[in-house]
Nucleic acid binder design. Structure first.
Length: 894
DNA sequence: GCGGACTGCTTACCT
DNA sequence: ACAGGTAAGCAGTCCGCG
């Protein structure tokens, strides 16, 4: 089963119903910046002019949806409780008459009532009557180990039905959607958008400027159908509204530990918290230290403006931290879910601080706040899509230091000793830097990260907490679910989609894959001047749009659609009705390509506006890039393999057709991958012809993406080097750019790269070739003469993909090195980068720390230098062996 | 017992 | 837990080899 039994918020430790009684337990906290006293819960007033809807939960006490509104003027959070009487529910195909027979259901304490509802069944393609089973509590629907309504119905009905009823025909739908999501979908509320409270009711704000922009957009998309335009406008309305300033604070804690290098257990919370730092957007900078006996003041400078406060008791220190957590609307941590907030909460309990005084809600995998929104930046930066598409793989190490160094150029303070041995000054300095860095991860480039999370919350329809923690497939699922509810379409169960439309028909090139993917054109080896790169902008989303792909439309039940075949597959696509995916993904794609990308570069707009548009187009890019893949991912709740397969098949068809056309137009294609073509010195009219043909015949645009002054291809696919007119060098796939190879080799490679950047025309190539040969020779000689700097220069840095025990089939070199490290008492876990060098004696590897320079296997390094350079030398008509002076005979003998 | 041909595993990359 | 395709390097296996 792809769906999870329980959600994070139902797994909150302790008894959810005892969390903060609304009327009796009022917690009053005075914050440090002279604001008003805070009363909990901070109810929204009867009238509130404008506040952003940032988060929501189910409140077990009032049994209502609870919405957090962020009001940027005062920088406060207000709580708004549902006033419409909306309740949790699920749907079933059993009639109320049948359901009445199920005693356990009727007697269930959370059960409220039945309603008959008409819904559209997307898999049967017709209206159906279903029963809405309404409950008083979302946990009654699902979330209790036994005795949840969603389980009782299929389990109990066959027993009471009289005749034999198979469990399979009894359906329960929409029982696994979190209540606050369900609430938002039904009430058509949008996370991240501003609302006003008027006489206690929530009303969306309308902004004149945003509406004006929507009007402009409407004019741009003249060719869109009415249905498409409707969706484009709906998205644009979400994206045109500006972002607020986020009042926020980053915190970081340090815990005393007797053993250096061991992370204290956040659940046990045995050791005292000795230091906490705070960095606020309102310039509140603070370090709180626990006084300990015999500790030196020590030397060390805190940046100016940082308050230093000492506490005699840890309890007082923690209470002081809690004031901050009861105060700020947004709290930032780096790994606070697993460590900082979790430790604080457990430590507080250990010290006898009352539950109601603790501002943290500790879940199984997350830690949330009772007042504000906790954003764990570790979780956000861990997201693969964010890493790749939003930050272009700029950071590699998923540590605070790694991310900050790559993005901000800021580093943690290096420690020579354990926390236990630091003086007050050293500890304060160290701790403060961490919260400073954490904060700055959200403030660089005009608060990009906060805005990105906001935009993603709007598009996905998820609270900021969730959107910052969950992956792109959840975001996509959420906006598709939202559209189902909007149109009164039953949200299908994953297993029903799969049993109806689960089969694929093509054979993947790679063993173990489910279907065939993209085409890579065999490159023509050599150096070519004036290479034009053309590509289909967001090819797969375009295909989903144009071919009307979706789980409903593929293999639809209509006879007449069966002739509408996807090229090279037996799959047909519906001709009667537009699929939700086609409309939603297609309109997002069109908006990005034809509006947001252009606006982000529009010099007539203010810098601020351009930056906003740039963030928006970046968010769209992240989503669009994943919008095809999710349909081929089992974990996606609308998993539908033929949709993914059809998308890839049309992709292959498109590039194959354009290759043929290029040949007809006598344009030589040097290379191509998935959605791109590299053309050899084409004329303007040839390019024009090609793109016109694609527009007419394939109904797809193809753009001239860039022109390389020259490009170097080896005979290997996904391996090339291109020099743009401005001298920038694009290196793709070559070993020389891979992050794990030794700096020594990378250095030599980069020298070659810099030299190649200077070549302007074929004539200049000859002297460049001589220089490159010298670079290679220099590297070779240095190795031969063992003239490297530190051993670090020779270290390979390979990420350990799994925990050490997991490697049973083979033992790769980095695993060998990691095991040696472990024997030496170093803690090793999945995701660690292992640095090792190649040595002469068995087992031919050693962790850098443990190796000495005389045991290096120089010949191995020469072999690596050789293969790294071969990828380029081939094309330049140079030979590694000749460069290093091997005679033809010696080469023959070797 | 050893080397070459082969397959499989693992990582890092491309679109 | 978005997909499939490609390259590289090494580990492990099989088989021939008087």
């Amino acid at each position: 089963m792809a769906q999870r039994q329980l959600d994070d918020y139902s797994q909150i430790e302790g008894k959810p119903k005892k969390v903060a009684k609304v009327d009796t337990q009022q917690i009053v906290a005075k914050n440090g910046v002279g604001r008003k006293r805070l009363v909990f819960p901070p109810l929204a007033p009867e009238n509130l002019s404008s506040a952003y809807l940032v988060s929501a939960t189910y409140d077990g006490v009032s049994r209502k949806a609870l919405i957090r509104l962020y009001e940027p003027e005062s920088g406060r959070i207000f709580f708004w409780y549902d006033n419409t009487g909306h309740k949790p529910y699920c749907l079933t195909n059993l009639s109320p008459y049948d359901l009445e027979k199920i005693d356990r259901l009727k007697r269930h304490q959370g059960f409220d009532h039945f309603e008959i509802q008409k819904k559209f069944d997307p898999l049967l393609d017709k209206d159906v009557k279903v029963t809405k089973v309404v409950a008083n509590d979302p946990l009654a629907i699902g979330g209790r180990p036994q005795g949840s309504i969603r389980d009782i119905i299929p389990q109990e009905f066959p027993k009471v039905a009289g005749t034999s009823v198979s469990t399979e025909v009894i359906k329960v739908w929409e029982a696994r959607i979190r209540y606050y999501q369900s609430y938002f979908y039904d009430r058509r509320l949008f996370f991240g958008m501003p609302y006003e409270v008027k006489k206690g009711n929530l009303i969306p704000k309308v902004l004149v400027e945003a509406e004006r922009a929507v009007g402009k957009i409407r004019n741009i998309f003249k060719d869109a159908t009415a249905e498409e335009l409707e969706h484009i406008e709906r998205w644009a309305r979400l994206l045109e509204y500006p972002a607020p300033k986020f009042r926020r604070a980053a915190i970081d804690i340090e815990v005393y530990s007797s053993i250096a290098n061991r992370v204290p257990d956040a659940h046990e919370a045995t050791y005292p918290i000795i230091c906490v730092s705070l960095y606020g957007s309102d310039n509140q900078k603070k370090v709180m230290l626990l006084r300990r006996e015999g500790l030196d003041q020590g030397e060390g400078n805190l940046p100016s403006g940082v308050d230093l406060e000492y506490f005699d008791s840890e309890k007082q220190l923690i209470k002081s931290v809690f004031k901050v957590l009861w105060e700020y609307p947004f709290v930032l941590t780096f790994n606070g879910d697993d460590f900082d907030l979790r430790y604080l909460a457990h430590r507080a309990l250990n010290l006898g601080i009352g539950r109601e005084e603790i501002p943290i809600v500790v879940g199984r995998r997350v830690c949330l706040l009772k007042y504000g929104v906790h954003i764990d930046l570790y979780r956000f930066f861990f997201n693969r899509s964010i890493q790749i598409y939003a930050f272009k793989n700029r950071y590699r190490d998923l540590t605070l230091n790694g991310v900050a160094k790559a993005i901000l150029g800021l580093e943690k303070i290096r420690l020579e000793k354990g926390f236990g041995e630091l003086s007050y000054a050293e500890l304060a300095q160290y701790c403060f830097r961490d919260s400073e860095i954490t904060f700055k991860l959200t403030s660089f480039e005009d608060e990009l990260v906060m805005k990105l999370i906001l935009v993603l919350a709007r598009i996905s329809g998820m609270p900021m907490e969730d959107v910052s923690r969950q992956g792109v497939s959840r975001w996509i699922r959420s906006f598709l679910y939202r559209e189902h509810r909007r149109r009164n379409i039953l949200i299908p169960n994953s297993e029903d989609i799969l049993s109806k439309k689960g089969k694929t028909s093509t054979k993947a090139v790679i063993k173990g894959k489910k279907y065939k993917g993209a085409i890579v054109v065999e490159p023509v080896p050599g150096v070519f001047f004036n290479v034009a790169v053309m590509d289909f902008p967001s090819l797969y989303p375009s295909i989903i749009k144009i071919w009307n792909l979706g789980y409903q439309s593929i293999l639809c039940p209509h006879q007449e659609c069966q002739a509408n075949l996807v090229p090279n597959t037996p799959h047909w696509v519906c001709t009667r009705k537009r699929s939700l995916e086609s409309l939603l993904i297609g309109s997002l794609r069109d908006l990005r390509v034809n509006w947001y990308k252009l606006r982000s570069k529009d010099k007539d707009l203010s810098k601020e506006l351009r930056s906003w548009y740039n963030i928006t187009q970046g968010a769209l890019k992240v989503i669009l890039n994943a919008s095809y893949g999710v349909f081929g991912a089992e974990s996606f709740d609308l998993y539908c393999p033929p949709v993914a397969e059809a998308t890839a098949a049309v992709g292959r068809h498109s590039i194959t057709q354009i290759l043929k056309k290029a040949e007809q137009l006598r344009i030589q294609v040097l290379y191509g991958d998935t959605d791109s073509l590299f053309l050899k010195n084409p004329s303007k009219s040839q390019i024009e012809n090609l793109s016109q043909w694609a527009e007419e015949e394939l109904k797809m645009s193809i753009d001239l993406e860039k022109v390389y002054r020259y490009a170097v291809f080896s005979s290997r696919k996904k391996n090339y080097l291109g020099v743009l007119e401005d001298g920038t060098v694009d290196v793709k796939g070559l070993t020389g750019k891979k992050k794990h190879i030794p700096l020594f080799i990378k250095g030599a490679f980069n020298k070659m790269k810099d030299r190649l950047a200077q070549v302007k025309n074929p004539a200049e190539f000859e002297s460049a070739k001589r220089d490159i040969a010298n670079i290679v020779l220099e590297g070779y000689n240095k190795l031969k003469r063992r003239e490297w700097g530190t051993l670090n220069e020779l270290a390979f840095n390979v990420v350990l993909g799994d925990s050490l025990e997991h490697y049973t089939k083979t033992t790769p070199q980095h695993v060998k090195a990691a095991r040696i490290l472990k024997e030496n008492g170093v803690e090793i876990k999945a995701g660690d980068r292992i640095s090792f060098v190649k040595t002469l004696r068995e087992p031919h590897v050693k962790p850098v720390e443990l190796a000495s320079r005389n045991e290096i296997d120089v010949e191995k390094y020469i072999a690596h230098l050789h293969s790294t350079f071969d990828q380029v030398l081939d094309a330049l008509d140079l030979s590694f062996d000749e460069i290093i002076g091997l005679t033809r005979l010696e080469r023959f003998m070797a």
